[in-house]
C-alpha cells in the first residue's frame, strides 16, 4: 500500500495494510514527489471534513507538518507489521527529521495523522515492550503531547506550544477526559478546563473526577 492509499484507509477505516518500505539493500524508500503532492492534496481534503467537529477554529495547516506526521505514521505502521528492519534504520527514519519550529499550526498539522499514536504504541507494546520501535514511538509521544494523550508513563510533557490556542486546548482537554489520563492534569489550565467540563457530573469521567475531588479548587 502506498502512502496515498495508507492515509485514506487510516482516516476513513482506521484499518491499514502496509507493505515494507525497506528495499533489498535495507534502505528506506521515500515516496516520490508526485506521491507526496497527492498525499497532501488528500490530507487537506480530509481535514476539511474533520475541522467542523472541533471546538472553535483550528490553526491553518502547514504542508511540512502535515506530510511529516503522515510519513512518520506510515513508517511506524510499516515497522510494526514488518519486523525484519534493524533498529538503527528504525531510529534514523523516525527521529532524525523532526520539524524544527513548533507552533500551534505545526502541532495541529502533525496531529492530523499522529493522533493515532496512542493506538500504535499500544499495538507495538503488545508485540514487545523491548522493541526499539516502542522507544522511538515514546520519544515521538513526548515530542507531540497533543497527539499522545492517554499514553501511560510518559512523565511530564511540555504543552506550551499549543496551550494558548483555544481550539487545540479544547481538543487536548477532550482527549484527556476521553482517555481519563490524569497525568495531564498537572497544567493549571488543563486542570481548570477538565473541572469545567465535568462540572457536577462526575459520572462523565469517574476516574478523573476522583482525582479532581482530591485536588482543592485553589490549586
Amino acid at each position: 500500500m502506498t502512502i496515498v492509499k495508507f492515509v485514506e484507509s487510516l482516516i476513513f477505516d482506521g484499518r491499514v495494510r502496509v507493505s515494507t518500505i525497506v528495499d533489498a539493500k535495507g534502505k528506506i524508500q521515500s515516496p516520490s514527489p508526485a506521491e507526496i503532492a497527492e498525499t497532501l492534496t488528500r490530507l487537506r481534503r480530509y481535514e476539511e471534513l474533520y475541522r467542523p467537529e472541533l471546538l472553535g477554529n483550528p490553526p491553518g495547516l502547514l504542508d511540512d507538518g502535515l506530510y511529516w506526521g503522515a510519513l512518520m505514521t506510515y513508517r511506524a505502521c510499516s515497522f510494526l507489521a514488518h519486523r525484519d528492519v534493524d533498529s538503527k534504520t528504525i531510529v534514523d527514519s523516525l527521529q532524525k527529521t523532526v520539524p524544527p519550529v513548533v507552533s500551534p499550526a505545526v502541532c495541529y498539522s502533525v496531529d492530523f495523522t499522529c493522533r493515532f499514536l496512542p493506538d500504535l504504541i499500544r499495538l507495538a507494546k503488545a508485540v514487545s515492550v523491548e522493541d526499539p520501535l516502542v522507544g522511538c514511538l515514546l520519544t515521538l509521544a513526548r515530542q507531540w503531547p497533543l497527539s499522545s494523550v492517554g499514553v501511560p508513563d510518559l512523565g511530564g510533557v511540555d504543552i506550551s506550544a499549543f496551550v494558548r490556542d483555544d481550539c487545540l486546548l479544547a481538543l487536548y482537554v477532550d482527549r484527556v477526559i476521553a482517555s481519563g489520563d490524569a497525568s495531564r492534569l498537572d497544567h493549571p489550565l488543563v486542570l481548570s478546563r477538565v473541572r469545567t467540563a465535568i462540572g457536577l457530573h462526575s459520572e462523565l469521567a469517574p476516574g478523573l473526577a476522583q482525582v479532581l475531588a482530591s485536588i482543592s479548587e485553589s490549586e
Binding site: 465535568i198 469517574p206 473526577a209 479532581l212 475531588a213
Partner: peptide, 13 residues
Amino acid sequence: TDYVALICRLRLA
C-alpha cells in the same frame, strides 16, 4: 462503583 461515583459527584458539588 456507583457508590464511589455518587460520593465523588457530591464532593464535586
